[in-house]
Structures are given as structure tokens and as C-alpha cells.
Design a protein around this nucleic acid. Sequence first.
DNA 1: AGCCAGGCTACCG
DNA 2: CGGTAGCATGGC
Length: 225
Amino acid sequence: MAEFSQEKAGKTKMREINSIYGKLLQHYGAQGWWPISGEYRKNDFSTPRNEEEQLEVCFGAILAQGINWQAAQKAVFNLSKLNALDLSAFEKLGEEKIREAVKPAGYFNQKARKLLEFSEFYSSLQGKTPSREELLGVWGVGEETADSILLYAYRQPQFVVDAYAKRIFCKLGLIDENASYAQVKKLLEDNLPLDYKLFNEFHALLVEHAKRHYSKKPFRDLVLL
DNA sequence: AGCCAGGCTACCG
DNA sequence: CGGTAGCATGGC
């Protein structure tokens, strides 16, 4: 009996989460993340990405930490002007030039170091795909950045939990206010098909929706759309 | 002027 | 463990 109602509740939750995705997609359309060279490629899920694209996603994910995407994009553009989205060229650049390039993205001392540590790690991979654990072992890569890299650079179905996703699912009553990263991630991954294309769009759509309606407290949008 | 932005690390109790 | 100060810039 208890087992039955639990299963029923689980299916209800599953329908609700899938329905949220459907509504967002219908309302905003495909987002085409991750933007490469500032370009959003809607419905382009070609895989595998080449090395330069992977590095741009990884650097972008690090540079976007705690800052708006426009600012992060300026830093990515500065690096691309220096031809530094190529690994060997980046390594020759030197920390001082990297600091200058990433300045618009804020926290430039930390972020320069993070990019350097990451490039060293990436180079050690010799083209193989890193595990989530390996990524988390890199200084400057936390859970959201690791999942963003696995999802957007390596096309793995890892749900990316960011501040926006937490706000939205919390407001919809699906998670507790102080739910951990792992708890939110599990909620989504247990209730969606493990499809990287779906995860890709879902995360991007949550960001788009939150930027419009969950930007500052109090988050007034009780229901979705 | 001040708040906010697609976090992470180090250090605290 | 969970909680939080510090990190820095720029747009609105």
C-alpha cells in the first residue's frame, strides 16, 4: 500500500518535472547552448566537439562563475583574440597576460589561476574524457562547473544545478530551500530521461526563465509562466 | 549609489 | 559536516 502510493507520488513528480520542461521549451524555444564564439547553435548537438570547442566551453564555464554571462563572454573573447583557446598557445601566454584578458569576468587573480590549473589538467587527459571525480579534483572546479563541462563539452547527461535552478524548483515546492547540490541534482536525474540533449536545453531554459522572473528577491513568480 | 551576476576555496564553530 | 567571508568587475 505504502509502496503503491509512493510510486504514484513519484510518477506525479516525474510528470510535473517533465511538464515544466515542456512549458519552458514551448514558451522560450530552443536555446542552443553552449554558445561557441558567441553563436548559439539551435538544435546542433553534434558530437564529439573538437578540442578548441571543448576548451572554450571549459574556460567559459570557469569564467562564468559568480558573474553574468556577458562579462564572462568578454573574457572568452579576449582570450580568443590572443588565440588562447588553443591549448599550446594558451600555455605560452603567461599568467600576467591571462589576468589582463580575464579581467572583465571579475575575480581575475583567481580565475587566471583556475584557467592555468585547468589547462594543465586538460592537457594531461590526452584527449580522453575526464570523470566527474577527476574534474572535481582540479582547483577551481566545483560541482556546477564539473557538470557544465561534462554536459556541454562532453555531451553527458549530467544535470547542472545553479542558483537559478534552485530558486525555481524551490519556488515550485519541489525542493527545500536549503537543499544540497546533490539533492537537487538527484531530483532532476531521477525524474527525467537521461538524455543530454534534454538536460542541455532544460538547464539553458531555466536560466532564461530565471533571468526574466527570478532575478531579485522576493521571487514573485509562484507558478511557471 | 547600490545591488546583482549561470561559484569556488579556505576557514570557522 | 553546514555556514560564510573573500574574491573583483561592470551594467543597470
